Simulated scan of single mutants.
Amino acid sequence: MHIRRSMTALALTGAAAGALAFGASPASAAASAITYDCTSTGQVCIYYNSSSYGYGAVFRQTSDVPNYAGRYFSAGRNGSAGAGVEVKNHAAAVDSWVASNFTVYFNSNYDCSVACQTVSAYNTVNLNANIKNNNASGRVT
């Protein structure tokens, strides 16, 4: 246990030194890093904010959702900004922990006639301008 803590402390010190070497302050380096709310396969975390704003509140999705109305963000490991806000038309980023693609749709019922964005398996992305704050449904595709 003591060895594991020492190795973790050494790794963190090295990461901070690396961030300083590239001109980033430790605070700004930490602000851009995601602290995972999804931690097991089969989950998708949808975030209220994009990476540049620290992600904020989270909605954990474990099955397809044809309409995000009536579903709400909760405070998570990345903060509480957006907690209590409805997920529909308020999402900015997706953290996928599924082995398939995950698609976010502009319209309810997985309708891509206006716009949609597909996130590849095990990927974390900010939603594009067509989908950010214009999300109505999401499913594994």
Rank of each mutant, 00 (worst) to 15 (best):
A17F: 06
F106S: 01
A9E: 11
S80P: 10
A19P: 08
A29N: 08
A81P: 00
S96C: 00
S51E: 15
G76V: 05
S51N: 15
A75T: 09
I46K: 03
T41Y: 00
N49C: 06
Y48H: 13
S50W: 03
N49L: 10
A17Q: 05
R71M: 07
A19L: 08
A92Y: 00
A27P: 02
D111A: 11
A91T: 01
T103F: 01
A15V: 10
V85L: 03
V104L: 11
A11W: 10
F106C: 00
R77M: 11
N49H: 09
Q43R: 01
L20D: 03
Q61H: 02
L10N: 14
Y110D: 08
Y72T: 02
A19S: 13
N67E: 03
D111G: 11
M7W: 12
G79V: 12
Y55C: 09
R5S: 14
G42Q: 04
T13K: 05
L12H: 12
R4M: 15
C38M: 04
Y36T: 04
T13I: 08
N107S: 06
G76T: 06
S40R: 11
S25E: 02
N109R: 13
F106A: 00
A83F: 02
A24D: 14
V65I: 15
A29S: 08
R71S: 07
V87D: 02
V65M: 13
H90S: 10
A99K: 07
C45D: 02
W97P: 01
A75L: 03
S80A: 15
G14Q: 09
A30L: 15
S28R: 10
V85F: 01
Y105E: 01
H90V: 00
V44K: 07
A91N: 00
G76W: 03
D37G: 07
A16V: 07
S108H: 03
T8Q: 15
A31L: 12
N49T: 04
S40H: 08
A21H: 13
A92D: 03
R5K: 14
V94M: 12
A115G: 00
G79D: 09
V98Q: 02
G76M: 06
T62P: 02
Y48D: 04
A21P: 07
V104W: 01
S100L: 05
D111F: 10
I3D: 13
L12S: 10
Y68M: 06
N67A: 09
D64I: 08
Y110G: 08
D95E: 04
T103N: 00
C38A: 15
N49K: 09
A29V: 05
T35Q: 04
S52A: 15
Y55E: 14
I34G: 05
S25H: 00
L10W: 13
R5A: 12
G76K: 04
S50D: 08
Y110P: 09
A19K: 09
G54K: 11
A11V: 11
G70D: 11
L20W: 07
T39L: 06
T62D: 07
